[in-house]
Design a protein around this nucleic acid. Structure first.
Lengths: 134, 134
DNA sequence: CCTTGACCCTGTAGTTGCTACAGGGTGCAT
DNA sequence: ATGCACCCTGTAGCAACTACAGGGTCAAGG
């Protein structure tokens, strides 16, 4: 059941270039090749790539994905490290949400202040312009 | 009242390298130089850079900042384009918030499922692992 | 048997928005 | 005159891909 890179890409919803990129940075192992020098993937690689994609979908950056992968290989180890990684990431996500929420408020205020007319008296431009103009 | 690049950076809270970068990509004009080939900034550049920084703080990407700048120069023009730009950006911010909120829920669920123990029975790793393992 | 087209290969450069050097020059104070 | 903070250019690096260019391979149809 060898898969070509294209088939692997389809089953994991990953672009071919991305798979080669993951190989280049050592996230995926170099697979065996066919006679025609095509990459031939098996179940192990499929599993590993699925894992990577799921972690990426959850927003883990690649270095954390790498850490999770090596933790998952070390099955006797204490789970606390994994938990800490996930908690850190959650904190980060929450910080981003807070930042964006503040931003949304500011933007919404800017937009409702726009009463039409020309740029010369546009409140949005005014709000961006330096103090001298206000 | 000529400012050096460092002084301009301090007043606008911008790194020197970033100012030079903005000049390189044409967001800031090339300023006159002193005898010693130092950039000499005036009030106009200070205003323009302040505008850029404010827009960036509001999360506008550089190409939108560029658009806002050229709109603000064209003061007789209809304000609707500015408004549309801001609305588009707001929509984008809202999409990101929604994405991150969904992510937060998933991550939180993952974390509460972790009951300690070894990696072998870690729910977080399991959730990431391919179907075969579940 | 040959050609067409879809796939695969490597290697490199582009994206966004900076940031960080390396290897020099300038300007002012001591 | 010498130290130090600042300035200059040019280039390379970050994340995480994406997009070529310029080739090779393979199965199917004529």
């Amino acid at each position: 059941m060898a898969l070509t890179i294209g088939e692997l890409g389809k089953t994991t919803d990953t672009k071919v270039e991305t798979i080669r990129y993951y190989e280049r940075i050592g996230l995926l192992p170099k697979p065996p090749r066919t006679g025609g020098n095509y990459r031939a993937y098996g179940a192990a690689e499929l599993g590993r790539l699925s894992f990577i994609r799921r972690a990426r979908d959850l927003g883990f950056p690649l270095d954390q994905v790498r850490a999770l992968l090596s933790l998952s290989d070390d099955r006797g180890r204490d789970c606390a490290t994994v938990d800490a990684l996930a908690r850190d990431h959650l904190t980060e996500v929450e910080r981003k949400i807070a930042d964006l929420t503040a931003l949304r408020r500011e933007l919404a205020a800017l937009i409702t202040s726009c009463g039409g007319g020309t740029v010369a008296d546009c409140r949005i431009i005014e709000a961006l312009a330096p103090h001298a103009n206000r």
